[in-house]
């Protein structure tokens, strides 16, 4: 990293934990000569280079696209999921938002359903299992239908698209005092329930995804709004209202299958 007069020095208090079986603790590390143009993860890359050169264990953190679209990265910076900037994943957070000499506390997502794998990386496969429970539509193979064959009202398409922007990073769970996955689950339920293709399995989906969410040990929603404020895609709390409505409707109205057999 080239030396520049705008570069800053930071103190990092980083959560270090060997694996899910051992207890972790904070370690204080220096991030020296950080360019304000670096992203937060690039800053950590540089810190890790130094650690490796000193024959020490680098800080483990999840990341993939580094473009803010994959949902792989994420940890707490001073108690805020993905850091202080709204609507931004930690990979798209730049060091110009921090001041020289600042101390930053880095912690992994905290939730019983997200056990820490190592340092800042935790296991978010609970969210995958919620998707597997019903976050899909069943489609027979064949030629794709012409897109305009199925009319969808513009407001529904807009709302569905806004819910579909969820990248499943888990910041909502991490920010929630109850570690509730209500925002994530509701975004998936809402996205599919608003579209004609998703409406076929609407009731079963709501029942199965909520049941899986509870089975994974996530907490209940207390409507604090912390999830939505921390969400890098700014998913709205109204998704949770929609999920509650869908779940009630499905619990009351779901039709029973009267005979055996599958989809055929």
């Amino acid at each position: 990293m080239s030396s520049d007069k705008n570069n800053i020095n930071l103190k990092l208090k980083v959560w270090r934990q060997k694996n899910s079986q051992t207890e972790g603790a904070f370690e204080t590390l220096d991030a020296k000569n950080v360019s304000p143009d670096a992203s937060f993860l690039e800053m950590l890359d540089a810190v890790n280079e130094d650690l490796i050169k000193k024959d020490k264990e680098p800080i483990v953190f999840d990341h993939d696209c580094r473009e803010g679209i994959c949902g792989s990265c994420g940890f707490m910076i001073n108690g805020e999921a993905h850091g202080p900037q709204k609507g931004t994943t930690v990979c798209q957070l730049h060091m110009r938002h921090f001041n020289d000499g600042e101390e930053l506390v880095l912690e992994p997502w905290r939730a019983t359903a997200f056990p820490v794998i190592k340092d800042l990386m935790c296991d978010r496969s609970a969210l995958d299992r919620i998707i597997r429970a019903g976050g899909y539509i069943s489609v027979n193979t064949g030629n794709a239908q012409d897109a305009n064959n199925i009319p969808i009202p513009k407001p529904d398409a807009d709302e569905a698209f806004m819910s579909a922007t969820c990248i499943g990073c888990g910041a909502c769970v991490a920010s929630c005092k109850n570690a509730s996955a209500a925002l994530f689950t509701s975004a998936k339920i809402t996205h599919l329930a608003l579209l004609p293709q998703g409406r076929v399995e609407q009731d079963q989906r709501a029942l199965d995804m909520v049941a899986q969410m509870d089975a994974e040990g996530f907490g209940a929603c207390t409507t604090t709004g912390a999830c939505s404020a921390a969400c890098p895609k700014e998913i709205s709390l109204i998704n949770i209202a929609k999920m509650n409505r869908e779940y009630l409707r499905a619990s009351v109205l779901k039709k029973e299958e009267l005979s055996g057999g599958g989809d055929g």
Partner: peptide, 29 residues
Amino acid sequence: SLTLENRAAKGTRYAVMPKGEKASTWASR
């Protein structure tokens, strides 16, 4: 029952509490 489950779901608390919008209100906590 919800409070007990919520506490169990969160497990470890953060060392630093968030401020502003990402914080929960005193009433809700």
